[in-house]
Design a protein around this nucleic acid. Structure first.
Length: 868
RNA sequence: GCCGGGGUGGUGAAACUGGUAGACGCACGGGACUCAAAAUCCCGCGGAGCUUCGCUCCAUGAGGGUUCGAUUCCCUCCCCCGGCACCA
């Protein structure tokens, strides 16, 4: 009767046991150290994909490993359940977003269970549940009270496919973050904003404390915040009034030879009004306004501008300088106007050359004079010493920045100023499937917050999703029509909903007290669990979610809900899951099944191009379906492969043969334990024989304890799952060999051998448990244990047993390996030197040559340096 | 252009603080078992050369440097991936 590794039976069995025993449910326990392990929760799009499998496999190893290390581990899961695709499905298939979402959640949850992830499902959080989103509304009201939420008119990004406005973060690079081939269009609208800029200095400064984050994520956030320090300066206009500019180089003010306005700048038109230049300027501004924003702000675009006819006065040189309007100056940054210093800014330089404007050098590079203005080939943007700068000449530019600012402040024509690239967070969305913004508009009282006692403002179930014509809620009369909370007269509700990133900005906090009904969080449990010790997810949220979540955490702190300032102590951004793709010149991307063995398209017989390995996606037809793999190999194999094939932060190349290899490994473990389970059960009643153990016993124990040390180090230091698994494979190989050498006799051999073997097998199964939990549990039971392996402590390496008794010492001559010697560990340096010099294999290389030096590294190597 | 991360066999990858380059896996080749296949097991597997039970030389993107010794440290250059980019 073939027994074999029956993963289907084993996995179902243990999933049931874990659930029945509530093995992963946790409560606060001050007696034990806590560990909060979190993976980014999924959007319930229908089915999980390999990216989820990888992300959650990593998190599960961490959670299970730390549980075995004695930590009280919180490992929750939930659903990012509001969002645009639900409405899309409603529009296309006529199924209600709520129904579509709950069906998807049910299916995806069943998939996560079948993967065997150790979530505490009693803490499950679903954002589209009023019990959750009412607190989004509550937070909104609190922010409003503190002046951190406001309604304002601003140019905003509109995505035609989303039929909604987006935040700046969601429209990075001028395209919608979800529809990356759809450019956003600018609209001037009145919308709700959260004042993330009130926390900008803290968000920037605290990045320095996030030493457990990848450097690139911190850099991306730093870039996004985009702080620049400089000055604002008022340039008097010749015809009265003044023009304010922002500059980071006040030290170059003497070199400002013209000024440039953004086309949208209010002065652009008024300065030329009623002059002969009026029509030219008007035409130029109109053309720029019409131009596509992405095209206009493209760095490679030609510079273009027109003279307004007006002039300003350089406040330091007293010279009249012309004012231009040009495409390369942006209204949304600084004051929308610049002083142009062509000698020291490449953009200004290019513009000056194009329109023959004067160039004046005011910074001399250190150690070398640069040519005079007209002969320059490029702007010098570095630091140096100030020249042609009146009383400031001779000063170092770094020092000059401060000195000029001070002078401007004394004269009352300028001041130090800081500018940021980041803008406030626009949270209004013209969509249905989101949190209603709790605001009522009254003709008498204006915009009135919904009183706290009236929360939640429930999303009405009956709505027509049309995908055009603005917020769907606006057409639900029963929802819109209400009374003003303050004057009781008829009023109208806000019909926009919140950005779904509001949900994810605090869900990790909610997991610590998911059933709280009277407040969003229980400060006591938050205090116990926060911060998240390890957060794991994709790099795509480097700026979006991770920035908003940091902001919300700081707001919660200031509301007295939490004591932490930063939510995630350690961040792991896992790499993408990739696979090679096949592309037919005629039929485009092909599925593996549509390519024959000779690598030809089954449609047209043309050879397919084997594409480079790229991120799995439906359009590239290179996805693998977790359900198929579950059926063919089981959860443990999939988990194992996705952890073994590459270190977690690197991209993982999916390989069917590799999966097969992982399955083979688990099968070998299965067979080893199944074949020898009787020995091991027998070993439980034995104790070690005193006296000197046989070399085979000592050797096996050495491997066992070395493996424990290696695996523990790999998991502890940096989540090197791939090398930890490699070590476990080596241990398996050693155990197999040992067992074979003992022969086919099923009766147990002498007790030390049995004990050494049992020790090795127990260590292997225990350490494999976080990676392949079902198999480990089953084998653990087979070995005669009644309690879950996850209630067992992680094995501890015995350093004395792990130490090799003899070591291989390499003998080099002039750095080249010439011999290897086996000597007892700890052999003295003098002895090693002697042995090396006497080594017959070394002598041909040293013979007749003067030994200049002998380098000895005990237990490692001897390097004999001879004159050649 | 700027900022991050990389470049190691046929391939995915290892290599602790400078100390035996290629662990572990995949693929491949050979063999065992089998009527056969699958599965399994064993052996080999960076390249070149030689006087081939072994030995020598070359080899971690390229070129230099530091060092007794460099995949690891320093300099210059090339290439790949990711992010930002007219932000004053």
């Amino acid at each position: 009767m073939a027994r074999g590794y029956d993963f289907t039976r084993i996995e179902a069995k243990w999933q049931e046991v874990w659930e029945a025993q509530r093995l992963f449910a946790v409560t606060e326990d001050p007696a034990r150290p806590k560990y909060y392990c979190l993976e980014m929760y999924p959007y319930p799009s229908g089915k999980i994909h390999m990216g989820h499998v990888r992300n959650y496999s990593i998190g599960d190893v961490v959670a299970r490993y730390l549980t075995m290390r004695g930590f009280n581990v919180l490992h929750p899961m939930g659903w990012d359940a509001f969002g645009f695709p639900a409405e899309n499905a409603a529009f296309e298939h006529g199924v209600h977003p709520a129904r579509w979402t709950t069906d998807n959640i049910a299916y995806m949850k069943s998939q996560l269970r079948r993967m065997g992830f150790s979530y505490d499902w009693s803490r499950e959080v679903t954002c589209c549940d009023p019990a959750y989103y009412r607190w989004n509304q509550w937070f909104f009201l609190k922010l409003l009270e503190r002046g951190l939420a406001y309604r304002g008119r601003a140019p905003v990004n509109w995505c035609e496919l989303c039929q909604s406005v987006l935040s700046n973060e969601q429209a990075e690079g001028g395209v919608c973050w979800r529809h990356t081939d759809t450019p956003v269009v600018q609209k001037e609208l009145e919308q709700w904003f959260l004042k993330i800029t009130a926390y900008v200095e803290e968000l920037l400064g605290d990045l320095e404390t996030l030493t457990g984050w990848p450097e690139r994520v911190r850099v991306m956030q730093r870039n996004w915040i985009g702080k620049s320090v400089g000055a604002e300066v008022d340039f008097p206009l010749v015809d009265g009034g003044s023009l304010r500019i922002f500059t980071t180089r006040p030290d170059t003010l003497f070199g400002a030879t013209f000024m440039v306005l953004a086309p949208e700048h209010p002065l652009a038109l008024s300065l030329s009004a009623g002059t002969p230049r009026e029509s030219t300027v008007r035409e130029f501004v109109a053309r720029m306004r019409r131009a596509d924003r992405a095209v206009r702000t493209d760095a490679t675009a030609e510079k273009e501008g027109v003279f307004t006819g007006a002039s300003a006065v350089n406040p330091l040189t007293r010279e009249r300088i012309p004012i231009w309007v040009a495409n390369f100056v942006l209204m949304e940054y600084g004051t929308g106007a610049i002083m142009a210093v062509p000698a020291h800014d490449q953009r200004d330089f290019d513009f000056a050359r194009l329109y023959r404007l004067p160039i004046r050098v005011v910074i001399q590079p250190p150690g070398g004079a640069q040519g005079s203005g007209e002969s320059l080939e490029a702007a010098y943007e570095g630091e140096g010493s100030m020249v042609n700068s009146g009383a400031f000449s001779g000063m170092a530019s770094e020092e000059g920045k401060l000195a000029v600012c001070q002078f401007l402040e004394e004269q009352g024509i300028g001041k130090r100023a800081v500018n940021y690239r980041i803008r406030d967070w626009l949270i209004s969305r013209q969509r249905y499937w989101g949190t209603p913004i709790p605001i009522i508009y009254c003709d008498t009282c204006g915009s009135v917050p919904v009183p706290e006692r009236d929360l939640p403002v429930i999303l009405p179930p009956d709505v027509a999703i049309t995908m055009s014509g603005g917020s769907p809620l606006a057409r639900v009369e029963e929802f819109v029509r209400t009374t003003c909370p303050s004057c009781r007269r008829p009023a109208r509700r806000e019909t926009d909903t919140m950005d779904t990133f509001v949900d994810s900005s605090w869900y990790f906090l909610r997991f610590t007290s998911p059933h709280e009904t009277t407040r969003p969080l229980d400060p006591g449990t938050v205090q116990y669990w926060m911060p998240v010790d390890q957060y794991i997810g994709g790099i795509e949220h480097a700026v979006l979610h991770l920035l908003y979540a940091r902001f919300f955490t700081k707001v919660c702190r200031d509301l007295g809900l939490t004591g932490v300032s930063e939510p995630f102590s350690n961040l792991l951004t896992q790499g993408m899951v990739c696979k090679e793709s096949y592309r037919c010149p005629e039929h485009g991307y092909r599925l593996p099944g549509e390519v024959d063995k000779q690598g030809r398209c089954t449609e047209c017989q043309r050879p397919v191009e084997i594409g480079r390995t790229e991120k799995m996606s439906k359009s590239k037809r290179n996805v693998v379906d977790p359900d198929d793999l579950l059926e063919r190999y089981g959860a443990d194999t999939i988990r194992l492969f996705s952890l073994f094939a590459a270190p977690p932060e690197k991209d993982l190349e999916w390989s069917d043969e590799g999966v097969q290899g992982s399955f083979r490994f688990l099968s070998r473990v299965w067979r080893l334990v199944e074949d020898r389970a009787a020995w091991i059960r027998a070993a439980r009643d034995l104790s070690w024989d005193d006296g000197v153990h046989a070399e085979a016993v000592r050797a096996l124990r050495r491997v066992t304890h070395q493996t424990i040390a290696r695996v523990t180090r790999d998991l502890e230091d940096a989540f090197h799952f791939n090398t930890a698994l490699a070590a476990l494979m080596e241990l398996l190989n050693a155990l197999n060999k040992f067992q074979e050498e003992l022969g086919a006799d099923p009766a147990p051999p002498r007790r030390n051998r049995v004990l050494a073997f049992a020790e090795g097998v127990s260590a292997l199964v225990t350490m494999l448990a976080p990676f392949a939990p079902h198999l480990a549990e089953e084998l653990w039971e087979m070995l005669g244990h009644r309690e879950s392996i996850f209630r067992r402590p992680w094995p501890v390496a015995d350093a004395a047993l792990a130490q090799a008794e003899t070591v291989e010492v390499v003998v080099q001559v002039n750095g080249k390996v010439r011999s290897r010697q086996h000597v007892p560990r700890g052999t003295a340096e003098d002895r090693l030197r002697e042995l090396a010099l006497a080594d017959p294999r070394v002598q041909p290389w040293t013979g007749g040559k003067a030994v200049r030096k002998v380098v000895v590294i005990p237990d490692k190597l001897v390097n004999i340096v001879v004159t050649s």
